[in-house]
Design a protein around this nucleic acid. Structure first.
Lengths: 108, 108
DNA sequence: CCTCCGCTTCGACATCCATCGAACGGTCGC
DNA sequence: GCGACCGTTCGATGGATGTCGAAGCGGAGG
C-alpha cells in the first residue's frame, strides 16, 4: 500500500484549507481527530458511504489538514496540527474552539 | 434602498464562514476590507463582472463576514470583525495573518 | 493459496457554485 | 421629470462537488 501524496507546508494554500474545513462532514472528522485519537478510516460513523468518506479524507489530505499512514490493511489518520500551526498560526485552534459552541447546537 | 438581511451573531455558522472565506476572490475582498477602509462595491478591481462581485458580497454578507450599509446610491462595505471575533475568537485574525504570507506568492 | 477485510478508484448522477450579459430598481444631479 | 450612476436580480451555462454502488487492490489469516 503506497503512501499517498501529502503536500509540504510550503505548498499549503489557505483557500484549500478553508474549503476543506467548510464541509460539515470534514469538520466533524477534524473535530474527531483533534481529540487526539489516531483513527482508522472505518471508525467514522457520519452516515456516509465508504467512498464518500474516502473522498473527504482525500480532500483533507490534499489540503494538508490530515496525514495518512498505512498500517497493514488499515490507514491511520492524524491531524497535521503542528504543521498547520506553523503555516497558518492560530487557524486550526480558532476553528476547533469556535466549533465547541456548535453552530446551530446551543439549543439547550 | 432597503437594508439587506444580516445574520445575527448567534446565527453565524462556522461552515458558512469558512466557505465564504474559501474563495480567493472573497478572500481578497476581506483582505481589502481588513485594511480598515470602508469600501463601496465598485472599488474592487478583481477582474470580475459586477454581477459576480455582487454575488460574492452576498455570500460574505449572508455568512456574516461583512456588513452592507446603504449610502445614497452607493453601498458601503465593512468587515464585521468584532462580531466575528466574538463568535469565532481568533478565526478572522488567523485567516488574515495567514494570508500575509500569500498562498502561492512566496515565489521570491 | 484462497478468502476476507479495509480502503480506494471508477463511473454515474444530482446538486451546487462561480461566472457572465441583460434587464431592473433606487438615488442623485440637472 | 429625465438621464446617469451604482448596484442588484434574473436567466443561463460550464465546471466543481458530494454522493453512491460496484469493482479493484493490497495485506492478513487460515
Amino acid at each position: 500500500m503506497r503512501e499517498p501524496h501529502h503536500p509540504s507546508c510550503d505548498e499549503l494554500e489557505l483557500s484549500a484549507v478553508l474549503h476543506a474545513l467548510s464541509d460539515p462532514a470534514r469538520l466533524e472528522i477534524v473535530r474527531w481527530l483533534a481529540k487526539g485519537d489516531e483513527c482508522t478510516c472505518g471508525m467514522f460513523d457520519l452516515g456516509l458511504s465508504k467512498p464518500t468518506l474516502s473522498h473527504h479524507f482525500r480532500v483533507l489530505r490534499e489540503a494538508g489538514v490530515v496525514r495518512t499512514r498505512p498500517d497493514g490493511r488499515k490507514r491511520m489518520l492524524s491531524l497535521r496540527d503542528e504543521e498547520l500551526e506553523g503555516r497558518f498560526p492560530g487557524l486550526l485552534v480558532a476553528v476547533l474552539s469556535a466549533d465547541r459552541e456548535r453552530d446551530g447546537a446551543p439549543a439547550a
